[in-house]
Each structure stands twice: as C-alpha cells, then as structure tokens.
C-alpha cells in the first residue's frame, strides 16, 4: 500500500552562540508558518531530553535539517539519534549561493537581515517541495 507523505519534518540547529543560529531559527520558523499543512518541527535537544515519540521523529517524517555552521549539529544529531535526514541544508552555503553577507548579531534581527532570512526560508520551502515530490 502506498502511503502518501503529508508532512516534512524540519530540524533547526538553533545555534544560540552564533548569529547564523538565529538566522536558522527565524528562517525555519518562517518556512513552518508559510507551509503549516506540510511541515512540522521538533526542538533538537528533545532527541535526548524527550521520549520515544521524539526519538522516532525522523522515522515518522522525512526530515530536512538546517545548520548554521560546519559542525552540522542538526544533521549529525538527527542521524545519530533519530534517523537519516532526507536533506541537509547549510546556512553558510545558502548565503554564499545568494551572495549574501552573514549576519553579525545574535538577536533583534531587522531589515538588514531580512534578505538572508527570506533566502534561507525559500531554500527550505524548495527542499520541502522536493522531499514531497520524491516521497
């Protein structure tokens, strides 16, 4: 029996220590808000702090991870503790692709960071479409 995939899981790195982490959170939030019927998220630390339901997240949903730096915490943690992500996105690579400057502050993003947030959110939305097509 074919099971139609209805939702894609988005896992954000959250990176509290780096501006790209804030960009990651804001872009993931925007993507989630724009695609409410097709996306769902989980707080990354719940892979450790949560229960069985949280740990099987990547088995229950095809998952897109979004990371703010080359340590790739979201991708690694998802694969290590839940299941292999369908796609792994990297903020530095997206910014480079779009010719955008990395953000420099940890909080209170404004118009200066808007283009970066939109570009990352759009890349996440494209990845959601691809994952749904491939499912």
């Amino acid at each position: 029996m074919d099971i139609q995939v209805q939702k894609v899981g988005i896992v954000s790195c959250s990176g509290e220590e780096i501006p790209e982490g804030t960009l990651c959170r804001l872009a993931c939030r925007q993507a989630l808000d724009e695609r409410p019927g097709e996306t769902v998220t989980i707080c990354l630390p719940l892979f450790i702090a949560g229960g069985e339901e949280e740990r099987t997240f990547a088995q229950n949903y095809p998952t897109i991870t979004v990371d703010g730096c080359d340590k790739m915490c979201a991708a690694k943690a998802t694969e290590m503790l839940s299941g292999k992500p369908s796609k792994s996105l990297s903020i530095p690579e997206i910014l480079k692709k779009h010719g955008l400057t990395p953000p420099t502050k940890l909080r209170h993003f404004g118009p200066e960071e808007d283009a970066a947030v939109k570009a990352v959110a759009a890349e996440i939305a494209q990845a959601v479409d691809k994952v749904l097509e491939e499912a």
């Binding site: 509290e16 220590e17 780096i18 630390p45 892979f47 340590k71 915490c73 290590m80």
Partner: peptide, 12 residues
Amino acid sequence: TLTCLPLLVIND
C-alpha cells in the same frame, strides 16, 4: 557565557 545547546547533543 553561552554555548550552542545542540553542540551538547552531538557531544562536541
């Protein structure tokens, strides 16, 4: 001082 919580999740 801060660190990224996910770094603890991957045992950095």
